[in-house]
Design a protein around this nucleic acid. Structure first.
Lengths: 244, 244
DNA sequence: AAGTGGTCTAGACCACCGA
DNA sequence: CGGTGGTCTAGACCACTTC
């Protein structure tokens, strides 16, 4: 039942992994309730307190949501509103209104990593990567254009996947199709300029200032899963973050 | 012992508040160990598990740090090196080298809050605030210029404090002189332009693009402590953050 | 060896929600 | 009302660090 977990890990950590993979395997739909603490505790042969700790862990990670008196629910990023957990992007032109982001894949290919990409993904120089050029739109208007890189052997199938199968968010795809769960990200923001391609996609003039977000996302074991450089239109894009 | 806490709150929440205020009151120095779980549990007349939960809460908030087999330690931003905990600023021109940021207070005054400032500090409209105009330099070169606002009655003395007494970081001052411990911040980044004053201070041309960081910092009880709008030179300033 | 935090148990009772 | 999660207890044993 818990094959990928290390036996030396504490029970609650193994339970967390077990539940996480059941969630990743879509055993329960988004928003659906999982079995109660007591049922799960009995099923896994642990005390309710231990099961509780695992569930609390998953709640902190954003995979589950608890409602007192009701149950524990799967909370997966999707269209249904609230959360893009690490997508602290906001549409400045609509005052941060909650519009659904759209995603268009412009290019997908396998290429040799430049030194910059290799270092971002902690890959040896000369490794191959999957490159994705993507445009993101809010309310039909282009907001962000991003160059995105994935380690090659593993993510090769991504190049030919059906765009509809991919959808507007990539992290769920990494999880569903490649078994990679993103657990943390590192962002670095600076100022850049639109080159010809980005200017055309974002509908601005070449040379216009853009907000640049360089992001590395990390998996459960701390290895990078993707590295991207996103260019945001300064009039439509704000980046928000809460640090504790 | 726990006067500001609501009696209807769960015990672990009240304990958290009690410990937080003892930490804020500098009962233990930075890096110093607090009493063990069992001592604290006995002192407050609760079970170790309950005390444990309070401590775990404070660890998640970043006020404490636990080391197995050693103890639980106060973890507070300070001058002693490594951390500008929420200062994810980096000097782009020196490749992120560790230089000490310098701070110059340009103006300090009491003024009426604009609606924008009032909303940032969650104050009623028309409240008074302390305004600070500050320039921050890396390696002697101007990098960030910030407008900063503090709630008035409490921070009034800040206006006339000796600049040497204040030093390059404000959060420690809030703590030392006003008993306010910053536990979390919320940042929002966008793009702006240099007005005449900022252009002069930052040594750029009027109208040059600048990175704008709007930051609200929050205290232990979740109320805002300061609100600021920082303007960073795009060639010397990067903003970095890790999200877990 | 002594003391710390980390894990885990097997309960009890409460607060909340929905039928 | 019954079932859910939320709180709290009073322990036991383990893993780790320090002396």
């Amino acid at each position: 039942m818990l094959p990928p977990s290390d036996d030396r890990l504490p029970m609650h950590a193994r339970l967390r992994d077990a539940l996480a993979s059941r969630i990743a395997a879509l055993e329960w739909a988004s928003g659906e309730a999982i079995p109660s603490e007591q049922e799960l505790a009995k099923a896994y042969g642990v005390s309710t307190s231990t099961m509780r700790k695992s569930i609390e862990h998953l709640v902190r990670e954003g995979l589950l949501e608890r409602k007192q008196g009701v149950g524990t629910f799967v909370r997966r990023p999707s269209f249904d509103g609230s959360l893009f957990r690490w997508f602290n992007f906001e549409d400045a032109s609509t005052g941060g209104g909650r519009t659904v982001p759209e995603s268009r894949l412009i290019e997908r290919e396998v290429m040799d990593a430049t030194p910059e990409i290799a270092s971002g993904l902690r890959l040896p120089e000369g490794a191959k990567v999957v490159r994705v050029l993507r445009l993101r739109l809010w309310a039909g208007k282009p907001v962000i254009c991003e160059d995105l890189y994935l380690p090659h052997p593993l993510f090769e199938p991504f190049v030919t996947m059906d765009e509809h199968e991919i959808g507007p968010l990539l992290y769920p795809v990494y999880e569903r199709a490649f078994g990679q769960v993103v657990t943390s990200v590192e962002d670095e923001l600076s100022l850049g300029q639109a080159d010809v391609v980005k200017a055309r996609l974002l509908e601005v003039k070449t040379g216009d200032p853009l907000i640049v977000v360089e992001r590395t996302s990390f998996g459960t074991n701390g290895t990078p899963i993707d590295w991207r450089r996103a260019y945001g239109r300064s009039d439509r894009f704000r980046y928000r973050v809460r640090l504790t």
